[in-house]
Design a protein around this nucleic acid. Structure first.
Length: 556
RNA sequence: GCGCCCGUAGCUCAGGGGAUAGAGCAUCGGUCUUCGGAACCGAGGGUCGCGGGUUCGAAUCCUGCCGGGCGCGCCA
Protein backbone atom coordinates (compact mmCIF):
# COMPACT_ATOMS: atom_id res chain seq x y z
CA UNK A 1 0.00 0.00 0.00
CA UNK A 2 1.40 3.36 -0.96
CA UNK A 3 1.32 6.27 1.45
CA UNK A 4 -1.23 7.91 -0.80
CA UNK A 5 -3.56 4.94 -0.49
CA UNK A 6 -2.95 4.79 3.24
CA UNK A 7 -3.96 8.41 3.80
CA UNK A 8 -6.85 8.05 1.37
CA UNK A 9 -8.10 5.20 3.55
CA UNK A 10 -7.97 7.48 6.59
CA UNK A 11 -10.02 10.05 4.77
CA UNK A 12 -12.44 7.40 3.65
CA UNK A 13 -12.86 6.30 7.27
CA UNK A 14 -13.62 9.85 8.33
CA UNK A 15 -16.15 10.16 5.54
CA UNK A 16 -17.88 6.91 6.50
CA UNK A 17 -18.12 7.98 10.10
CA UNK A 18 -19.38 11.43 9.22
CA UNK A 19 -22.15 9.91 7.17
CA UNK A 20 -22.98 7.27 9.76
CA UNK A 21 -23.35 9.96 12.39
CA UNK A 22 -25.28 12.20 10.09
CA UNK A 23 -22.71 14.99 10.13
CA UNK A 24 -22.61 14.83 6.38
CA UNK A 25 -25.32 13.58 4.02
CA UNK A 26 -24.79 10.38 2.03
CA UNK A 27 -22.91 10.94 -1.19
CA UNK A 28 -20.94 9.13 -3.84
CA UNK A 29 -17.24 9.64 -3.37
CA UNK A 30 -15.05 10.58 -6.31
CA UNK A 31 -12.49 8.02 -7.49
CA UNK A 32 -9.49 10.10 -6.64
CA UNK A 33 -9.37 11.13 -3.03
CA UNK A 34 -5.82 12.41 -2.83
CA UNK A 35 -3.38 14.40 -4.90
CA UNK A 36 0.20 15.47 -4.61
CA UNK A 37 0.04 19.25 -4.33
CA UNK A 38 2.56 21.06 -6.49
CA UNK A 39 3.27 23.56 -3.74
CA UNK A 40 5.09 22.30 -0.64
CA UNK A 41 3.21 24.74 1.57
CA UNK A 42 0.09 22.73 0.87
CA UNK A 43 1.47 19.69 2.56
CA UNK A 44 2.62 16.30 1.30
CA UNK A 45 -0.83 15.19 0.25
CA UNK A 46 -4.05 17.05 -0.34
CA UNK A 47 -7.67 16.31 -1.01
CA UNK A 48 -10.22 18.39 -2.85
CA UNK A 49 -12.98 16.11 -1.60
CA UNK A 50 -14.94 18.90 0.14
CA UNK A 51 -14.91 20.95 -3.05
CA UNK A 52 -16.16 18.04 -5.08
CA UNK A 53 -18.92 17.23 -2.62
CA UNK A 54 -20.13 20.77 -1.96
CA UNK A 55 -22.59 20.92 -4.80
CA UNK A 56 -24.38 17.64 -4.14
CA UNK A 57 -24.44 18.14 -0.39
CA UNK A 58 -25.54 21.77 -0.58
CA UNK A 59 -22.87 22.65 1.92
CA UNK A 60 -20.02 25.09 1.94
CA UNK A 61 -16.77 23.23 1.14
CA UNK A 62 -14.97 24.79 4.08
CA UNK A 63 -17.81 23.56 6.30
CA UNK A 64 -17.48 20.01 4.98
CA UNK A 65 -13.76 20.06 5.58
CA UNK A 66 -14.21 21.31 9.12
CA UNK A 67 -16.63 18.52 9.93
CA UNK A 68 -14.40 15.87 8.39
CA UNK A 69 -11.09 16.73 9.94
CA UNK A 70 -11.88 15.80 13.56
CA UNK A 71 -13.00 12.39 12.33
CA UNK A 72 -9.76 11.54 10.60
CA UNK A 73 -8.15 8.89 12.80
CA UNK A 74 -4.69 9.67 14.13
CA UNK A 75 -1.97 7.76 12.32
CA UNK A 76 1.72 7.28 12.75
CA UNK A 77 2.34 8.64 9.24
CA UNK A 78 0.49 11.91 9.61
CA UNK A 79 1.86 14.95 11.40
CA UNK A 80 -0.86 17.46 10.74
CA UNK A 81 -4.16 17.89 8.91
CA UNK A 82 -5.59 21.29 8.10
CA UNK A 83 -8.14 23.08 6.00
CA UNK A 84 -7.13 25.50 3.28
CA UNK A 85 -9.44 27.74 1.30
CA UNK A 86 -11.41 27.29 -0.81
CA UNK A 87 -11.90 23.82 0.70
CA UNK A 88 -8.85 21.62 0.54
CA UNK A 89 -7.82 19.21 3.25
CA UNK A 90 -4.05 19.12 3.47
CA UNK A 91 -1.89 16.47 5.07
CA UNK A 92 1.69 16.83 6.27
CA UNK A 93 3.63 13.65 6.87
CA UNK A 94 5.62 13.09 10.03
CA UNK A 95 9.30 13.46 9.38
CA UNK A 96 9.89 10.59 11.79
CA UNK A 97 7.81 8.37 9.54
CA UNK A 98 9.49 9.69 6.39
CA UNK A 99 12.91 9.01 7.79
CA UNK A 100 11.97 5.44 8.67
CA UNK A 101 11.21 4.87 5.01
CA UNK A 102 14.94 4.82 4.39
CA UNK A 103 15.00 1.56 6.32
CA UNK A 104 12.04 0.31 4.33
CA UNK A 105 13.81 1.04 1.05
CA UNK A 106 17.03 -0.60 2.14
CA UNK A 107 15.13 -3.62 3.34
CA UNK A 108 13.12 -3.96 0.13
CA UNK A 109 16.24 -3.49 -1.96
CA UNK A 110 15.69 -4.19 -5.64
CA UNK A 111 12.08 -5.00 -4.95
CA UNK A 112 11.32 -1.52 -3.67
CA UNK A 113 8.34 -0.10 -5.50
CA UNK A 114 7.02 -3.45 -6.71
CA UNK A 115 3.35 -4.00 -6.17
CA UNK A 116 0.62 -6.49 -6.79
CA UNK A 117 -1.62 -4.44 -9.01
CA UNK A 118 -1.65 -7.15 -11.67
CA UNK A 119 -2.23 -10.04 -9.26
CA UNK A 120 -0.28 -12.31 -11.54
CA UNK A 121 -2.57 -11.77 -14.53
CA UNK A 122 -1.06 -12.96 -17.77
CA UNK A 123 -0.40 -10.04 -20.06
CA UNK A 124 1.22 -10.17 -23.44
CA UNK A 125 2.87 -7.17 -25.01
CA UNK A 126 3.45 -7.40 -28.71
CA UNK A 127 5.57 -4.71 -30.26
CA UNK A 128 7.92 -3.79 -33.10
CA UNK A 129 6.73 -6.71 -35.28
CA UNK A 130 8.16 -5.09 -38.37
CA UNK A 131 8.06 -7.10 -41.58
CA UNK A 132 11.45 -8.75 -41.92
CA UNK A 133 12.01 -7.26 -45.36
CA UNK A 134 14.79 -4.91 -44.37
CA UNK A 135 16.73 -3.39 -41.51
CA UNK A 136 14.95 -1.52 -38.75
CA UNK A 137 15.03 2.23 -38.99
CA UNK A 138 14.61 5.07 -36.56
CA UNK A 139 10.84 4.99 -36.63
CA UNK A 140 10.79 1.45 -35.30
CA UNK A 141 12.93 2.28 -32.30
CA UNK A 142 10.24 4.20 -30.52
CA UNK A 143 7.80 1.32 -30.29
CA UNK A 144 10.60 -1.02 -29.24
CA UNK A 145 11.75 1.14 -26.41
CA UNK A 146 8.21 1.94 -25.33
CA UNK A 147 7.24 -1.72 -25.36
CA UNK A 148 10.26 -3.00 -23.50
CA UNK A 149 9.91 -0.37 -20.81
CA UNK A 150 6.19 -0.87 -20.44
CA UNK A 151 6.86 -4.57 -20.05
CA UNK A 152 9.30 -3.80 -17.23
CA UNK A 153 6.79 -1.52 -15.55
CA UNK A 154 3.97 -4.04 -15.74
CA UNK A 155 6.23 -6.77 -14.42
CA UNK A 156 7.08 -4.54 -11.46
CA UNK A 157 3.35 -4.04 -10.94
CA UNK A 158 2.66 -7.69 -10.45
CA UNK A 159 1.70 -8.82 -13.93
CA UNK A 160 3.09 -11.91 -15.52
CA UNK A 161 4.46 -10.37 -18.69
CA UNK A 162 5.41 -11.91 -22.00
CA UNK A 163 7.10 -9.90 -24.75
CA UNK A 164 6.44 -10.94 -28.29
CA UNK A 165 7.55 -10.10 -31.81
CA UNK A 166 5.10 -11.15 -34.52
CA UNK A 167 7.03 -12.23 -37.57
CA UNK A 168 5.16 -11.62 -40.81
CA UNK A 169 6.76 -14.45 -42.72
CA UNK A 170 3.73 -14.92 -44.94
CA UNK A 171 1.94 -12.51 -47.22
CA UNK A 172 2.54 -10.49 -50.32
CA UNK A 173 5.24 -8.22 -48.93
CA UNK A 174 7.34 -11.22 -48.09
CA UNK A 175 6.74 -12.73 -51.53
CA UNK A 176 8.13 -9.57 -53.01
CA UNK A 177 11.09 -9.71 -50.65
CA UNK A 178 11.80 -13.34 -51.53
CA UNK A 179 11.64 -12.65 -55.23
CA UNK A 180 13.84 -9.56 -54.94
CA UNK A 181 16.38 -11.67 -53.13
CA UNK A 182 16.32 -14.25 -55.93
CA UNK A 183 17.00 -11.56 -58.50
CA UNK A 184 19.87 -10.10 -56.50
CA UNK A 185 21.28 -13.57 -55.99
CA UNK A 186 21.34 -14.22 -59.71
CA UNK A 187 22.96 -10.85 -60.32
CA UNK A 188 25.55 -11.57 -57.65
CA UNK A 189 26.55 -14.60 -59.65
CA UNK A 190 26.77 -12.64 -62.88
CA UNK A 191 23.45 -13.65 -64.36
CA UNK A 192 21.07 -11.23 -66.01
CA UNK A 193 17.92 -10.75 -64.02
CA UNK A 194 15.49 -7.89 -63.64
CA UNK A 195 14.14 -6.49 -60.38
CA UNK A 196 10.34 -6.40 -60.15
CA UNK A 197 8.98 -2.87 -60.26
CA UNK A 198 7.84 -2.97 -56.64
CA UNK A 199 10.83 -4.96 -55.43
CA UNK A 200 13.11 -4.16 -52.55
CA UNK A 201 15.88 -2.18 -54.17
CA UNK A 202 17.89 -1.23 -51.09
CA UNK A 203 21.59 -1.94 -51.17
CA UNK A 204 21.23 -4.20 -48.16
CA UNK A 205 19.46 -6.65 -50.47
CA UNK A 206 22.48 -6.70 -52.77
CA UNK A 207 24.71 -7.42 -49.82
CA UNK A 208 22.39 -10.06 -48.43
CA UNK A 209 22.29 -11.84 -51.78
CA UNK A 210 26.05 -11.68 -52.15
CA UNK A 211 26.51 -13.08 -48.69
CA UNK A 212 24.23 -15.99 -49.44
CA UNK A 213 25.94 -16.60 -52.76
CA UNK A 214 29.29 -16.82 -51.00
CA UNK A 215 28.06 -19.01 -48.18
CA UNK A 216 25.69 -21.26 -50.09
CA UNK A 217 27.22 -21.35 -53.54
CA UNK A 218 25.55 -21.37 -56.96
CA UNK A 219 23.21 -24.28 -56.33
CA UNK A 220 20.04 -22.22 -56.42
CA UNK A 221 20.67 -21.33 -60.06
CA UNK A 222 20.04 -24.93 -61.03
CA UNK A 223 16.67 -25.07 -59.29
CA UNK A 224 13.35 -24.19 -60.82
CA UNK A 225 12.70 -20.50 -60.10
CA UNK A 226 9.79 -21.13 -57.73
CA UNK A 227 11.90 -23.62 -55.79
CA UNK A 228 14.88 -21.28 -55.71
CA UNK A 229 12.76 -18.36 -54.50
CA UNK A 230 11.41 -20.49 -51.71
CA UNK A 231 14.74 -21.91 -50.64
CA UNK A 232 16.58 -18.62 -50.86
CA UNK A 233 13.71 -16.89 -49.12
CA UNK A 234 13.94 -19.17 -46.14
CA UNK A 235 17.63 -18.41 -45.76
CA UNK A 236 17.11 -14.69 -46.35
CA UNK A 237 14.35 -14.56 -43.78
CA UNK A 238 16.50 -16.19 -41.12
CA UNK A 239 19.36 -13.82 -41.81
CA UNK A 240 17.07 -10.84 -41.76
CA UNK A 241 15.54 -11.88 -38.45
CA UNK A 242 18.93 -12.44 -36.94
CA UNK A 243 20.00 -8.98 -37.95
CA UNK A 244 16.80 -7.41 -36.62
CA UNK A 245 17.28 -9.20 -33.34
CA UNK A 246 20.85 -7.98 -33.07
CA UNK A 247 19.83 -4.44 -33.88
CA UNK A 248 17.16 -4.47 -31.20
CA UNK A 249 19.55 -5.84 -28.66
CA UNK A 250 21.74 -2.81 -29.26
CA UNK A 251 18.99 -0.68 -27.74
CA UNK A 252 18.32 -3.37 -25.14
CA UNK A 253 15.04 -4.50 -26.60
CA UNK A 254 14.46 -8.22 -26.38
CA UNK A 255 11.61 -10.67 -26.69
CA UNK A 256 10.45 -13.84 -25.02
CA UNK A 257 8.75 -15.15 -28.13
CA UNK A 258 9.21 -14.67 -31.86
CA UNK A 259 5.90 -15.78 -33.30
CA UNK A 260 5.58 -16.92 -36.90
CA UNK A 261 2.58 -15.78 -38.90
CA UNK A 262 2.96 -18.77 -41.17
CA UNK A 263 2.53 -21.12 -38.23
CA UNK A 264 -1.06 -19.94 -37.95
CA UNK A 265 -1.78 -21.67 -41.25
CA UNK A 266 0.11 -24.87 -40.53
CA UNK A 267 -1.05 -25.03 -36.92
CA UNK A 268 -4.76 -24.84 -37.63
CA UNK A 269 -5.47 -21.50 -35.91
CA UNK A 270 -6.50 -19.94 -39.17
CA UNK A 271 -9.06 -22.63 -39.90
CA UNK A 272 -10.40 -22.66 -36.37
CA UNK A 273 -10.82 -18.92 -36.07
CA UNK A 274 -12.54 -18.72 -39.44
CA UNK A 275 -14.84 -21.49 -38.33
CA UNK A 276 -15.78 -19.53 -35.23
CA UNK A 277 -16.59 -16.46 -37.29
CA UNK A 278 -18.55 -18.53 -39.77
CA UNK A 279 -20.65 -20.12 -37.09
CA UNK A 280 -21.29 -16.75 -35.52
CA UNK A 281 -22.48 -15.52 -38.90
CA UNK A 282 -19.76 -12.93 -39.48
CA UNK A 283 -18.52 -14.27 -42.81
CA UNK A 284 -20.00 -13.31 -46.13
CA UNK A 285 -19.03 -14.20 -49.67
CA UNK A 286 -19.23 -11.29 -52.08
CA UNK A 287 -17.54 -10.17 -55.32
CA UNK A 288 -15.46 -13.30 -55.29
CA UNK A 289 -13.93 -12.57 -51.92
CA UNK A 290 -14.60 -13.57 -48.34
CA UNK A 291 -15.53 -10.72 -46.03
CA UNK A 292 -15.66 -10.11 -42.31
CA UNK A 293 -19.03 -8.50 -41.68
CA UNK A 294 -17.73 -5.92 -39.24
CA UNK A 295 -20.58 -3.55 -40.06
CA UNK A 296 -22.72 -5.89 -38.00
CA UNK A 297 -20.53 -4.90 -35.06
CA UNK A 298 -20.82 -1.19 -35.62
CA UNK A 299 -17.87 -0.63 -37.92
CA UNK A 300 -18.40 1.56 -40.96
CA UNK A 301 -17.26 -1.04 -43.46
CA UNK A 302 -16.62 -4.71 -43.96
CA UNK A 303 -13.12 -6.09 -44.39
CA UNK A 304 -11.79 -8.62 -46.82
CA UNK A 305 -10.37 -11.77 -45.31
CA UNK A 306 -9.67 -13.83 -48.40
CA UNK A 307 -9.01 -12.12 -51.70
CA UNK A 308 -10.59 -13.33 -54.89
CA UNK A 309 -7.14 -14.74 -55.71
CA UNK A 310 -7.59 -17.08 -52.76
CA UNK A 311 -4.85 -15.43 -50.71
CA UNK A 312 -5.77 -14.46 -47.14
CA UNK A 313 -5.19 -10.88 -46.11
CA UNK A 314 -3.01 -9.70 -43.27
CA UNK A 315 -6.19 -9.07 -41.31
CA UNK A 316 -7.19 -12.72 -41.62
CA UNK A 317 -3.86 -13.66 -40.10
CA UNK A 318 -4.49 -11.14 -37.35
CA UNK A 319 -7.72 -12.84 -36.45
CA UNK A 320 -6.08 -16.23 -36.27
CA UNK A 321 -3.24 -14.70 -34.29
CA UNK A 322 -5.51 -13.15 -31.70
CA UNK A 323 -7.58 -16.29 -31.49
CA UNK A 324 -4.32 -17.96 -30.58
CA UNK A 325 -3.40 -15.31 -28.04
CA UNK A 326 -6.69 -15.33 -26.19
CA UNK A 327 -8.14 -18.78 -26.63
CA UNK A 328 -5.11 -21.01 -27.01
CA UNK A 329 -2.48 -19.29 -24.93
CA UNK A 330 -4.96 -17.84 -22.49
CA UNK A 331 -3.66 -14.31 -22.02
CA UNK A 332 -5.89 -12.29 -19.74
CA UNK A 333 -4.79 -9.12 -21.40
CA UNK A 334 -3.16 -8.39 -24.72
CA UNK A 335 -1.41 -5.14 -25.54
CA UNK A 336 -0.32 -4.33 -29.06
CA UNK A 337 1.88 -1.36 -29.76
CA UNK A 338 1.47 0.05 -33.24
CA UNK A 339 2.70 3.03 -35.17
CA UNK A 340 0.24 5.76 -36.09
CA UNK A 341 0.15 4.52 -39.67
CA UNK A 342 -1.86 1.51 -38.44
CA UNK A 343 -4.26 3.55 -36.40
CA UNK A 344 -7.13 3.00 -38.83
CA UNK A 345 -7.13 -0.70 -37.99
CA UNK A 346 -8.10 -0.25 -34.39
CA UNK A 347 -11.89 -0.39 -34.84
CA UNK A 348 -11.79 -3.63 -36.79
CA UNK A 349 -9.51 -5.17 -34.20
CA UNK A 350 -12.07 -4.37 -31.54
CA UNK A 351 -14.80 -5.76 -33.76
CA UNK A 352 -12.76 -8.89 -34.26
CA UNK A 353 -12.38 -9.37 -30.51
CA UNK A 354 -16.15 -9.19 -30.04
CA UNK A 355 -16.70 -11.62 -32.88
CA UNK A 356 -14.30 -14.08 -31.27
CA UNK A 357 -16.19 -13.74 -28.02
CA UNK A 358 -13.40 -11.84 -26.29
CA UNK A 359 -14.31 -8.80 -24.21
CA UNK A 360 -12.82 -5.86 -26.14
CA UNK A 361 -11.25 -4.36 -23.02
CA UNK A 362 -8.94 -7.36 -22.87
CA UNK A 363 -7.31 -6.01 -26.01
CA UNK A 364 -5.45 -2.73 -25.76
CA UNK A 365 -4.00 -1.02 -28.79
CA UNK A 366 -1.39 1.58 -28.06
CA UNK A 367 -0.75 3.86 -30.98
CA UNK A 368 2.54 5.65 -30.91
CA UNK A 369 2.85 8.63 -33.19
CA UNK A 370 5.48 8.72 -35.85
CA UNK A 371 8.94 10.10 -35.47
CA UNK A 372 10.11 12.86 -37.74
CA UNK A 373 13.79 12.63 -38.34
CA UNK A 374 15.96 15.62 -39.03
CA UNK A 375 19.56 16.44 -39.58
CA UNK A 376 19.68 20.09 -38.66
CA UNK A 377 17.28 21.79 -41.02
CA UNK A 378 16.97 18.88 -43.38
CA UNK A 379 14.09 16.47 -42.96
CA UNK A 380 15.17 12.89 -43.55
CA UNK A 381 12.56 10.84 -45.33
CA UNK A 382 12.45 7.20 -44.48
CA UNK A 383 11.59 4.72 -47.17
CA UNK A 384 12.41 1.12 -46.59
CA UNK A 385 11.78 0.09 -50.15
CA UNK A 386 14.37 2.37 -51.65
CA UNK A 387 16.72 1.85 -48.75
CA UNK A 388 17.17 5.57 -48.13
CA UNK A 389 16.87 5.56 -44.40
CA UNK A 390 18.69 6.05 -41.19
CA UNK A 391 18.86 2.64 -39.65
CA UNK A 392 18.48 1.82 -36.02
CA UNK A 393 22.07 0.68 -36.08
CA UNK A 394 23.35 4.02 -37.32
CA UNK A 395 21.27 5.83 -34.75
CA UNK A 396 22.58 3.78 -31.84
CA UNK A 397 26.14 4.03 -33.08
CA UNK A 398 25.79 7.80 -33.19
CA UNK A 399 23.84 8.47 -30.04
CA UNK A 400 24.32 5.44 -27.82
CA UNK A 401 21.67 3.18 -26.30
CA UNK A 402 21.22 5.03 -23.01
CA UNK A 403 20.63 8.42 -24.60
CA UNK A 404 18.41 6.81 -27.21
CA UNK A 405 16.22 5.13 -24.65
CA UNK A 406 16.01 8.12 -22.38
CA UNK A 407 15.16 10.45 -25.23
CA UNK A 408 12.47 8.28 -26.80
CA UNK A 409 11.02 7.42 -23.42
CA UNK A 410 10.56 10.95 -22.22
CA UNK A 411 7.87 11.68 -24.80
CA UNK A 412 4.37 10.38 -24.37
CA UNK A 413 3.39 7.89 -27.08
CA UNK A 414 0.62 10.02 -28.53
CA UNK A 415 2.76 13.02 -29.23
CA UNK A 416 4.61 13.27 -32.49
CA UNK A 417 8.24 13.71 -31.85
CA UNK A 418 11.12 15.18 -33.66
CA UNK A 419 14.50 13.56 -33.55
CA UNK A 420 17.29 15.83 -34.63
CA UNK A 421 20.35 13.69 -35.09
CA UNK A 422 22.68 16.66 -34.99
CA UNK A 423 21.16 17.90 -31.78
CA UNK A 424 21.13 14.48 -30.15
CA UNK A 425 24.82 14.12 -30.85
CA UNK A 426 25.69 17.65 -29.87
CA UNK A 427 23.84 17.46 -26.61
CA UNK A 428 25.09 14.10 -25.62
CA UNK A 429 27.84 15.45 -23.40
CA UNK A 430 25.57 17.86 -21.61
CA UNK A 431 22.26 16.08 -21.51
CA UNK A 432 19.81 14.81 -18.93
CA UNK A 433 20.79 11.21 -19.53
CA UNK A 434 24.21 11.77 -18.06
CA UNK A 435 22.85 13.96 -15.33
CA UNK A 436 20.87 11.02 -14.00
CA UNK A 437 23.64 8.51 -14.52
CA UNK A 438 26.13 10.85 -12.91
CA UNK A 439 24.04 10.92 -9.77
CA UNK A 440 24.30 7.16 -9.64
CA UNK A 441 28.03 7.19 -10.25
CA UNK A 442 28.46 9.79 -7.53
CA UNK A 443 26.57 7.60 -5.11
CA UNK A 444 28.68 4.63 -6.06
CA UNK A 445 31.76 6.75 -5.39
CA UNK A 446 30.59 7.66 -1.91
CA UNK A 447 29.71 4.09 -1.00
CA UNK A 448 33.05 3.00 -2.35
CA UNK A 449 34.80 5.50 -0.13
CA UNK A 450 32.83 4.29 2.87
CA UNK A 451 33.83 0.74 2.14
CA UNK A 452 37.48 1.63 1.73
CA UNK A 453 37.33 3.50 5.02
CA UNK A 454 35.96 0.43 6.67
CA UNK A 455 32.74 2.07 7.78
CA UNK A 456 29.93 -0.31 8.61
CA UNK A 457 26.73 1.70 8.43
CA UNK A 458 24.27 -1.18 8.75
CA UNK A 459 23.45 0.07 12.26
CA UNK A 460 23.07 3.68 11.08
CA UNK A 461 20.30 5.51 12.90
CA UNK A 462 18.09 7.22 10.34
CA UNK A 463 16.31 9.28 12.96
CA UNK A 464 19.38 11.52 12.91
CA UNK A 465 18.36 12.69 9.44
CA UNK A 466 16.74 16.10 9.90
CA UNK A 467 18.32 18.35 7.31
CA UNK A 468 15.76 19.68 4.77
CA UNK A 469 17.91 18.34 1.96
CA UNK A 470 17.81 14.89 3.51
CA UNK A 471 14.07 14.99 4.04
CA UNK A 472 13.48 16.27 0.53
CA UNK A 473 15.42 13.37 -0.94
CA UNK A 474 13.40 10.92 1.14
CA UNK A 475 10.15 12.52 0.01
CA UNK A 476 11.11 11.81 -3.57
CA UNK A 477 11.97 8.22 -2.83
CA UNK A 478 8.66 7.67 -1.08
CA UNK A 479 6.82 8.73 -4.22
CA UNK A 480 8.41 5.98 -6.28
CA UNK A 481 5.79 3.28 -5.62
CA UNK A 482 3.06 5.71 -6.65
CA UNK A 483 4.95 6.34 -9.86
CA UNK A 484 5.01 2.64 -10.67
CA UNK A 485 1.30 2.44 -10.00
CA UNK A 486 0.46 5.44 -12.16
CA UNK A 487 2.56 4.20 -15.04
CA UNK A 488 1.00 0.75 -14.90
CA UNK A 489 -2.53 2.09 -14.71
CA UNK A 490 -2.14 4.60 -17.52
CA UNK A 491 0.39 2.64 -19.56
CA UNK A 492 2.56 5.71 -19.49
CA UNK A 493 6.21 4.89 -18.90
CA UNK A 494 7.22 8.34 -20.09
CA UNK A 495 6.97 9.55 -16.49
CA UNK A 496 10.06 7.53 -15.65
CA UNK A 497 12.72 9.80 -17.14
CA UNK A 498 11.08 12.85 -15.61
CA UNK A 499 10.98 11.27 -12.21
CA UNK A 500 14.57 10.13 -12.54
CA UNK A 501 15.59 13.71 -13.25
CA UNK A 502 13.83 14.96 -10.16
CA UNK A 503 15.31 12.26 -8.00
CA UNK A 504 18.79 13.02 -9.32
CA UNK A 505 18.26 16.71 -8.62
CA UNK A 506 17.18 15.93 -5.07
CA UNK A 507 20.28 13.84 -4.61
CA UNK A 508 22.66 16.45 -6.04
CA UNK A 509 21.08 19.05 -3.80
CA UNK A 510 21.53 16.82 -0.79
CA UNK A 511 25.11 16.14 -1.78
CA UNK A 512 25.75 19.84 -1.98
CA UNK A 513 24.34 20.51 1.46
CA UNK A 514 25.38 17.49 3.45
CA UNK A 515 28.84 16.09 3.72
CA UNK A 516 28.36 12.34 3.95
CA UNK A 517 31.61 10.70 4.98
CA UNK A 518 33.28 12.43 7.88
CA UNK A 519 36.46 11.34 9.66
CA UNK A 520 35.54 13.14 12.84
CA UNK A 521 34.62 10.70 15.56
CA UNK A 522 31.88 12.95 16.90
CA UNK A 523 30.21 12.78 13.47
CA UNK A 524 30.22 9.02 13.23
CA UNK A 525 26.48 8.79 13.90
CA UNK A 526 25.40 11.19 11.17
CA UNK A 527 27.92 9.68 8.77
CA UNK A 528 26.33 6.27 9.16
CA UNK A 529 22.82 7.63 8.93
CA UNK A 530 23.66 9.49 5.72
CA UNK A 531 25.40 6.49 4.24
CA UNK A 532 22.22 4.54 4.75
CA UNK A 533 20.27 7.30 3.04
CA UNK A 534 22.73 7.28 0.16
CA UNK A 535 22.34 3.54 -0.11
CA UNK A 536 18.57 3.91 -0.30
CA UNK A 537 18.89 6.64 -2.92
CA UNK A 538 21.04 4.35 -4.96
CA UNK A 539 18.45 1.61 -4.80
CA UNK A 540 15.68 3.85 -6.12
CA UNK A 541 17.82 5.47 -8.79
CA UNK A 542 19.11 2.12 -9.96
CA UNK A 543 15.55 0.83 -10.16
CA UNK A 544 14.60 3.75 -12.38
CA UNK A 545 17.53 3.17 -14.66
CA UNK A 546 16.85 -0.55 -14.73
CA UNK A 547 13.19 -0.08 -15.63
CA UNK A 548 14.24 2.27 -18.41
CA UNK A 549 16.73 -0.29 -19.65
CA UNK A 550 19.67 1.99 -19.00
CA UNK A 551 23.07 1.46 -17.48
CA UNK A 552 23.58 2.38 -13.83
CA UNK A 553 27.30 3.14 -13.98
CA UNK A 554 29.68 2.87 -11.01
CA UNK A 555 31.90 5.44 -12.64
CA UNK A 556 31.79 7.56 -15.76
C1' G B 1 -14.57 15.02 -47.54
C1' C B 2 -14.47 11.49 -43.11
C1' G B 3 -11.63 9.29 -38.80
C1' C B 4 -7.56 9.29 -35.02
C1' C B 5 -3.45 12.11 -32.73
C1' C B 6 -1.09 16.73 -31.77
C1' G B 7 -0.75 22.48 -30.99
C1' U B 8 2.03 24.80 -23.65
C1' A B 9 8.73 29.38 -22.75
C1' G B 10 13.48 30.85 -28.30
C1' C B 11 13.96 25.01 -29.22
C1' U B 12 12.50 19.81 -27.59
C1' C B 13 8.73 18.33 -24.41
C1' A B 14 6.03 17.18 -19.29
C1' G B 15 1.48 18.43 -16.85
C1' G B 16 -4.80 15.82 -19.20
C1' G B 17 -10.73 19.01 -13.68
C1' G B 18 -7.94 21.95 -8.47
C1' A B 19 -4.29 26.23 -5.13
C1' U B 20 1.21 30.82 -8.04
C1' A B 21 1.44 26.20 -15.43
C1' G B 22 6.84 23.05 -15.06
C1' A B 23 11.62 20.50 -16.87
C1' G B 24 15.83 19.99 -20.16
C1' C B 25 18.54 22.68 -23.75
C1' A B 26 19.65 27.78 -25.14
C1' U B 27 20.56 33.08 -22.91
C1' C B 28 22.25 36.05 -18.64
C1' G B 29 24.17 36.30 -13.60
C1' G B 30 26.03 34.03 -9.06
C1' U B 31 28.09 29.80 -5.67
C1' C B 32 31.66 26.50 -4.52
C1' U B 33 36.06 24.55 -5.81
C1' U B 34 38.18 18.69 1.25
C1' C B 35 33.06 12.41 -0.27
C1' G B 36 33.42 12.84 -8.38
C1' G B 37 32.21 20.37 -10.98
C1' A B 38 29.24 15.67 -15.93
C1' A B 39 27.58 19.80 -9.47
C1' C B 40 24.64 23.76 -6.87
C1' C B 41 21.70 28.55 -6.66
C1' G B 42 19.21 32.55 -9.16
C1' A B 43 17.10 35.65 -13.39
C1' G B 44 14.70 36.70 -17.86
C1' G B 45 11.27 34.36 -21.06
C1' G B 46 3.86 32.11 -21.55
C1' U B 47 -2.87 35.25 -24.69
C1' C B 48 -1.33 26.97 -22.65
C1' G B 49 -3.35 27.88 -31.42
C1' C B 50 -8.24 31.08 -31.65
C1' G B 51 -13.60 31.62 -30.30
C1' G B 52 -17.81 29.82 -27.59
C1' G B 53 -19.77 26.40 -23.74
C1' U B 54 -19.96 23.14 -19.05
C1' U B 55 -18.06 23.89 -13.83
C1' C B 56 -17.31 26.75 -7.39
C1' G B 57 -12.79 26.04 -10.45
C1' A B 58 -10.53 24.65 -17.47
C1' A B 59 -3.91 24.20 -20.23
C1' U B 60 -7.01 19.81 -18.88
C1' C B 61 -13.87 18.22 -20.45
C1' C B 62 -17.63 19.60 -24.76
C1' U B 63 -18.20 22.36 -29.39
C1' G B 64 -16.77 25.33 -33.83
C1' C B 65 -12.77 27.19 -36.47
C1' C B 66 -7.23 27.54 -37.76
C1' G B 67 -2.55 24.93 -38.27
C1' G B 68 0.43 20.18 -38.47
C1' G B 69 1.00 14.55 -38.63
C1' C B 70 -1.13 9.84 -39.94
C1' G B 71 -4.91 6.95 -41.94
C1' C B 72 -9.42 6.10 -45.11
C1' G B 73 -7.35 -0.81 -50.84
C1' C B 74 -9.30 -7.71 -52.50
C1' C B 75 -1.30 -3.29 -49.29
C1' A B 76 1.02 -4.38 -44.86
Amino acid sequence: MTIKERVAALLQQAMDEAQAKGFIPQAMLPDVLLERPQNREHGDLASSLPLRLARNLHLNPMEIAQRLIPLIPPAEEVERVWVAPPGFINFALKSYWLVQQVEAVVQAGERYGNMDLGKGKKVQIEFVSVNPTGPLHVGHVRGGILGSTLANVLAASGYSVEREYYVNDAGTQMDSFYYSLYVRYQQALGKEAEMPKDGYVGTYMVELAREIAIEEGEGFLQMRPEEAVKALGAIGLQKMLKSIKEDLERVRVSFDVWFSERSLYTGGQYDKSMQILREAGYLTQREGALWFASTALGEDKDNVLVRSTGAPTYFASDIAYHYNKFSERGFDWVINIWGADHQGHVPRMKAMASALGVAPERLTLIISQLVTLRRGQEVVRASKRTGELVTLRELVDEVGPDACRFFFLSRSPESQMEFDLELAKKESSENPVYYVQYAHARIAGILQLAQESGIDYSDGDVSLLVNPAEIDLIRHMVEFPELIETMAQNLSPHHLPHYAMELATAFHWFYDHCRVVSRLSEEEGITKARLKLVQAARIVLARCLDLMGMDAPEKM
